[in-house]
Design a protein around this nucleic acid. Structure first.
Lengths: 217, 217
DNA sequence: GCAAGGTCTTCTGAATTCATAATTAAGGTT
DNA sequence: AACCTTAATTATGAATTCAGAAGACCTTGC
């Protein structure tokens, strides 16, 4: 995220608003009260409105002419679209990571993988999902493609608020774990094509989608 | 681009700055003179700076703390990364378009395809590239995936300034045309898998990359 | 003559002020 | 009593003002 230091005021404000949205403090579809947030953050409206412009582009809010900003609704259709794109990007990341991953990155992913396995065996889903997430992010970073990393992180941010709410069935869960096993093997073999294929068929996102059928309006 | 009306002042300003960058009026690496652009556009600094925040997240400029904005340099590495991602997104678009394309969209793409062929036969490269571009965009739109469309258009914007400068060799050109032939066939057959495969191997971007070897620092 | 330190100018970052548009409430009319 | 119209209030959009930082230029000392 912060390839350039995010130490600007509008950057800080944007980050905090993202958090508010992710936490649900700002409900989807509700208006974003500029004045209230200003005093809450202790800043004037100028940096806050700059932050809103950025958030609008990132897809967190939508700007209505002369009517301010509303929190984006994140419909089921949007979620589906987002996961489709993320899955495709992960496939590309896998392909590239197979060619470009460093020893250190591989070791890190293996460590995460074993952590994830241990969480799986203990049935700790929250920790499992966290490690899972970190593995996918690490693969994206290992692609060494800055544009890919940026776009992926942005999309990941957008769906952050619905992550970690999924309830996995045991069948899905065990299959996802076995796919992760194959992923690590492909990484060790530096087999980008195989890894890309696994990731493009990896059902993590599909699982999350199905788990989200009820929510998201 | 304008899913919501872009009729805001900062949106207009952003568009005009994008144009200036694409036209080369603002050189890569050079600073963005706020004051000068303000009087040039006849607006105050507030909407202009809001526009710069957006452009920063779009990748057109980078913000240096307390030193304003510089036009992003678009190095060869960045170009390569961008094309990698775009190619992957096009592959996904092809896959989805195969399942979801409407009759009208298909007819439109076929019409563009024949226009493109005619430009090819006449050796009119500029017109060929334009039609080519439109076909790829139309396939992306036919994917019916709004997130994909947004991300793709953004990346397309970024590389706009280096498009249409490529000089294609005859070998590359004829191969690209034959690949386009296969693409239209796959679309007619609603064969998303095939179309995705063709697009992921389509060498248009590679051609452009090679043609851009010398430029972009 | 060259370098180092300081000051001055210019530009960015943020707050405040001003204007305009929208929404809501109140009053009048039907 | 209900609905429409109008006015007032509130919030957004933009300009201006103010403060702080960076860069340039000049002066002075070595």
């Amino acid at each position: 995220m912060d390839k350039i230091r995010q130490n600007t005021l509008h950057g800080e404000v944007a980050e905090r608003i993202r958090d508010l949205i992710a936490q649900g403090a700002l409900a989807p579809g509700s208006r974003v009260p500029e004045k209230q947030l200003c005093e809450q953050f202790g800043v004037s409206r100028t940096p806050l409105r700059e932050a809103l412009k950025v958030l609008a582009y990132e897809g967190f809010v939508e700007l209505l002419p002369n009517r301010g900003a509303r929190v984006a609704k994140l419909t089921k259709a949007t979620l589906k679209s987002t996961f489709e794109v993320m899955q495709s990007l992960e496939a590309l990341a896998g392909e590239l990571a197979g060619q470009r991953i460093t020893e250190a990155e591989l070791a890190n992913i293996e460590a995460l993988h074993y952590q994830m396995l241990s969480h799986y065996k203990r049935g700790n889903m929250q920790e499992y999902l966290l490690a899972n997430q970190q593995i996918h992010e690490a693969i994206v970073v290992a692609s060494q493609n800055d544009v890919l990393i940026d776009v992926y992180k942005n999309l990941n941010h957008r769906v952050r608020r619905v992550r970690f709410t999924a309830e996995l069935s045991n069948d899905y869960w065990s299959q996802a774990v076995s796919e992760h096993e194959s992923m690590v093997e492909a990484l060790r073999a530096r087999d980008g094509a195989a890894l890309g294929g696994i990731l493009s068929r990896h059902l993590r996102n599909k699982v999350e989608m199905s788990a989200l059928e009820e929510m998201a309006e």
